[in-house]
Amino acid sequence: MHLLPDLKKALPARASLAPTPEEAPEAMRTEALSAWFGPHQVLHEISLRFPARQVTALIGPSGCGKTTYIRCLNRMHEVVPSARVGGKVLLGGEDIYAPKVDPVLVRRRIGMVFQKPNPFPAMSIYGNVAAGLRLTGLAKGRSLDEIVERSLRQAALWDEVKDRLHQPGTDLSGGQQQRLCIARTLAVEPEVLLFDEPCSALDPVATEKIEQLLFELKKRYTIVIVTHNMQQAARVSDLTGFLLMGDLVEFGRTESLFTTPKDPRTEAYITGRFG
């Protein structure tokens, strides 16, 4: 352990070392966040800090609680019957689990992209992107066409769909559907974007598109991504947290976590000895 400071110095400097992830202002943090399904505790007091406009990846083997954790960040965990949350999630200093907070309003500020592409089957491409604004009453007096185009452009999908905006969203390929879901999330202008294994159902080409998209999106948004693909975490993230059986084992800058893990369990996992 005492060797670590030296090893850190030996690492090559980051290409874009504007503010380091540690120095970036905080967008969101969790304090002693625990989660249960019925009597079964799946997360144990996890405290993490998400810097603004950085990508934070959460890795860990299946069942380690990373998906549960990310679902706690926009109050989606409690959607499941018997699910329960303890601790705090602070967004801009406010606890989103405070008694008076409406989960519906929290979710408008913290968007989520899911594991499987899930466009609304009964809606067109246009309708999918506009759905968030229409169904939350935020569309009034705004130009939906403009917002839809902007969101699709941000999701790098506009050129592929601009001539068939009124066809069903489910007609698109898997990768396009996932970018449609990203556009749908962007349209409501959240502050934080949560990605729950967004590429696990996609082929490598579609995966690469999504990863490139993440680089673009982090210029404007704070991003948290769950993945069990370690290469993906290494490629896209600035910070990485390693979860194991509901505990946060290690958290730090991505390159140091992958090159000089402090915890032997992290090392075992990233070198492929389990998981």
Partner: peptide, 12 residues
């Protein structure tokens, strides 16, 4: 997951 997508957009 279709329901969850809507809820996650902040739709009640």
């Amino acid at each position: 997951n279709v329901r969850e997508a809507a809820l996650a957009l902040g739709v009640n």
